[in-house]
């Protein structure tokens, strides 16, 4: 399998400004020493609860954030080392679809000029060529091209998300990061957009990173899944392996917490995970999950477990697997 993206020991820290004189600034370790690869043509799902760093990770990969340490290699070259011109060229190949279809489209631009913008920025094509491409892409995402002259606020949420996807497609990218791309949509519209993303994947052989908090959505769309907790990878495996054979107590808790679409036997369900997600400013000692973990041992309080391969492609960071 060809590696499209390699992330090695990536760290992204944010320093919180403190107004109090003499107090030490607090550091949020949003992405804390992550390593993983993305293979060409796969859909890598990244799932985790709020504050786990999944969105920061997505933005860092596209160099929309700074990185503190580590490497991000796209087709073998470090994206943080590129000069402005090379970075601009790279931006053509990597695109992003955002969560909020209301704030991710410039409200003052008509759909036609929103979609023309990517090609204009990169000085591609004549006016006619851009126009033809817009028509083609709008049809592709299921919006009638006659609505080119409308403003984003004149569309429904689902249609706006389609426009956001169309904008990402304008430059024929190879790699698309979908950051909670369907979370803000109504269920029936969410299903349409998921199908659209899969249609596009089949047709253009895109590589996706699909970031979401919704395990069911990630489980449906991904070929491989990566579970994050407080800036760390806790478990990763091919989808079938992870669904059928997850090991980490947090992964299990996520699966258990997810409401089933069947009321039968709801009173006998497994115990729910207690406690809150800790703040990434001051993560617990040892394994970050140990205060909530039903199977925590003494060792878990002292040392963070390494990410170990338990079977081909299946990695877990948990002391239970020693």
């Amino acid at each position: 399998m060809e590696k499209l993206l390699e992330v090695k020991n990536l760290k992204t820290y944010f320093t919180l400004k403190s107004d109090r004189i003499g107090s030490r600034p607090e550091v949020v370790k949003a992405v804390n020493d992550l390593s993983f690869d993305v293979n060409k043509g796969e859909i890598l799902g990244i799932v985790g609860e709020s504050g786990c760093g999944k969105s920061t990770l997505g933005k860092t990969i596209l160099k929309l954030n700074h990185k503190t340490e580590g490497e991000i290699l796209f087709k073998g070259s470090e994206i943080f080392d590129l000069n402005d011109k090379d970075l601009k060229d790279l931006r053509r190949k990597m695109q992003m679809v955002f969560q909020d279809p209301f704030s991710s489209l410039n409200p003052r631009k008509k759909v036609g000029s929103l979609l023309a913008q990517p090609m204009q920025i990169h000085k591609l094509g004549t006016k006619e060529e851009i126009d033809a491409k817009i028509d083609e892409i709008m049809k592709e995402v299921g919006i009638n091209p006659v609505y080119k002259g409308r403003f984003p606020h004149q569309f429904s949420g689902g249609q706006r998300q389609r426009i956001g996807i169309a904008r990402a497609l304008m430059l024929n990218p190879e790699f698309i990061i979908c950051d909670e791309a369907v979370s803000a949509l109504d269920v029936s519209i969410q299903a349409q957009v998921l199908n659209l993303l899969l249609d596009l994947h089949d047709k253009y052989k895109f590589t996706y990173i699909f970031i979401a908090h919704d395990l069911a959505v990630v489980e449906f769309i991904s070929t491989r899944i990566l579970v994050m907790y407080l800036g760390k990878i806790v478990e990763t495996a091919e989808k079938k392996e992870l669904v059928g054979n997850h090991f980490h107590p947090y992964t299990k808790a996520l699966f258990d917490a997810f409401p089933a679409t069947d009321p039968k036997g709801r009173d006998e369900r497994a115990t729910v995970l207690m406690g809150d997600v800790p703040s990434p400013i001051n993560p617990p000692s040892g394994c970050y999950f140990h205060p909530r973990c039903p199977r925590a041992m003494d060792k878990c309080k002292l040392e963070y477990p390494p990410l170990k391969e338990v079977s081909p492609g299946h990695k877990v960071a948990c002391w239970l697997h020693e």
């Binding site: 933005k59 596209l62 929309l64 970075l87 601009k88 931006r91 053509r92 990597m94 695109q95 992003m96 955002f98 969560q99 909020d100 704030s103 991710s104 489209l105 410039n106 409200p107 913008q117 990517p118 920025i121 990169h122 956001g164 904008r167 430059l171």
Partner: peptide
């Protein structure tokens, strides 16, 4: 802070 600024930045603006 709006996403469309991030979006346009990611397009290379």
């Amino acid at each position: 802070e709006n996403d469309y600024i991030t979006a346009e930045r990611s397009l290379g603006a």
